[in-house]
């Protein structure tokens, strides 16, 4: 059965400070799957993720050529197109970083923050969405009685789950994860892996990972980044 393509990159070339990091990379990513991106460290895996939500534009001295298309509402959109607002893109494409990055605010505010940025969400609605997301990442039971405590007091694993909840509150269709478990201990990493397997029902997930065992446990397909090129590897079951 042919799978729907969610993300399609064409001839993607990326350079930082004049140094080429990606060259001529074309790849399709299937809808509703977890695709692992592997490769030697420093090969530009994280950078590749940044090209999918245009976050590299915040870094000076970068250039990008090529095209990225994503399928939203049954139609492919050129995410670098003039009429495609970058804020809308980033609401549809969530991202979780290697090091948990909660903002210096309360737990509740952290999760509600993206909705506040978007605006137009009633307060009651916001509360229930926050609760829903915190339940989804299994954090609700641990924090429900201290929602207004600082998010920075949580443990590393809790912080990372909080960041995932924060990304989920916008109901993104694509989730980019940049080695989300490498800063965590074994048990916390396991919890996040389980969570990702559940999430792939609603999201297309791209996961950068160093750990081959983790990749074989949860990835549906694997893409290797080698010498600046994306190469599809045999599909894992």
């Amino acid at each position: 059965m042919d799978k729907t393509v969610k993300i399609r990159t064409e001839n993607l070339c990326f350079s930082y400070n004049g140094r080429a990091i990606l060259c001529n990379s074309s790849m399709d990513f299937a809808d509703g799957e977890i695709t692992a991106i592997v490769g030697p460290s420093g090969s530009g895996k994280s950078t590749f993720l940044l090209t999918l939500n245009r976050l590299w534009e915040a870094i000076p001295r970068c250039t990008l050529q090529g095209a990225v298309e994503m399928r939203f509402n049954g139609r492919y959109h050129d995410i670098y197109g003039r009429d495609y607002p970058v804020t809308r893109l980033r609401r549809q494409v969530g991202m979780v970083f290697q090091v948990p990055n909660p903002l210096p605010m309360s737990i509740y505010k952290n999760v509600a923050f993206p909705l506040q940025l978007k605006g137009g969400v009633p307060k009651e609605n916001m509360r229930s969405r926050v609760e829903e997301c915190l339940r989804q990442v299994r954090l609700w039971d641990e924090v429900q009685d201290r929602l207004h405590a600082s998010a920075l007091d949580l443990s590393g694993g809790q912080q990372q789950r909080l960041c995932i909840a924060r990304a989920l509150i916008l109901r993104p269709e694509v989730l980019l994860l940049d080695e989300p478990t490498s800063a965590l201990d074994h048990a916390a990493a396991k919890a996040i892996e389980r969570l990702l397997l559940e999430l792939k029902r609603s999201c297309t997930i791209l996961l950068v990972s160093h750990y081959l065992d983790q990749v074989s446990r949860i990835a549906d397909s694997v893409v290797e980044l080698h010498n600046g090129r994306l190469v599809s590897k045999a599909e894992y079951d």
Binding site: N53, L55, A58, I59, T87, R88, R90, R91, G94, M95, F97, V99, N101, L103, P104, F113, P114, L117, K118, R166, A167, L170
Partner: peptide
């Protein structure tokens, strides 16, 4: 740090929102 700069942007903040709500407070 760049990470602080990217956090809110990755959550769909506009440039101004990022400045006013995250960068200046930090």
């Amino acid at each position: 740090p760049l990470s602080a700069r990217m956090t809110a942007l990755s959550l769909g903040a506009s440039r101004l929102q990022n400045i006013v709500r995250v960068l200046v407070p930090q």
